[in-house]
Structure formats: structure tokens, C-alpha cells
């Protein structure tokens, strides 16, 4: 376990070094955008919650956005995986044929 943690720690450190510069690759540089979401017209709920957060604390919003995206990615991934497996296809092996 400890070994795994150490590995994970090393990986996280690597990611922190590596990733900031990769961001540039993710698209053209973008200036800060000052937008206020109009929460007056939103009924309380999910939309209102995100809009409030966007207006109030963009940092928490950013953390939330990444966590939720990753979470949703994995949940949907596992879910779709279950569905795919239930079709009875063999999803663990494949031959490499180039031509």
C-alpha cells in the first residue's frame, strides 16, 4: 500500500510539473472573461446552484467543475461498460491486425 501511495505521490508531482505547460496546448490563449450569471431569473436548483457559485467563488467553481467532470466521466464509463459487457461481447482481448 505504502509503495502504491509513493508511486501515486510521485505521479501527482509529475503531473503538477508536466501539466501547466500542457494547458497551452489545450487551445489558444484566452483572456479572463468577466461574466455575471443572471441568478435573478433562475429558480433554486442545480442551475441556480452552479450560477451562484460561478458568481461568488470561481475557484471553488473550478475545482467543482473538474471533480464533477472526472466523476461523471468515471460513473458514465463504468455504467456504459456494464451495458457493453451485458451484450456478451468479448471486451478483454483483441488481435492486432495491421492490414
Amino acid at each position: 500500500m505504502r509503495k502504491r501511495l509513493a508511486k501515486l505521490g510521485g505521479f501527482i508531482a509529475l503531473v503538477q510539473v508536466v501539466v501547466p505547460s500542457m494547458l497551452l496546448a489545450a487551445g489558444p490563449k484566452a483572456a479572463d472573461l468577466v461574466v455575471v450569471a443572471d441568478t435573478r431569473v433562475l429558480a433554486p436548483g442545480l442551475n441556480r446552484y452552479f450560477a451562484d457559485l460561478y458568481n461568488t467563488d470561481i475557484l471553488v467553481f473550478a475545482v467543482w467543475a473538474v471533480v464533477l467532470t472526472a466523476l461523471m466521466g468515471s460513473v458514465l464509463g463504468v455504467l456504459m461498460d456494464k451495458i457493453m459487457v451485458s451484450t456478451g461481447l468479448n471486451l478483454s482481448k483483441r488481435k492486432i491486425i495491421e492490414h
Binding site: V19, L23, A25, A31, F61, L68
Partner: peptide
């Protein structure tokens, strides 16, 4: 790279979650 890019773009207010 995508996860990090998402974080920084969100900080700049450029995301419609």
C-alpha cells in the same frame, strides 16, 4: 492535459458547466 486545461479555463470564467 484535458483535466488541467478544464481547470484553468474555468478559472478564467470560460465554461458552461
Amino acid at each position: 492535459s484535458g483535466l488541467y486545461g478544464a481547470f484553468t479555463y474555468t478559472l478564467k470564467g470560460r465554461i458552461e458547466i
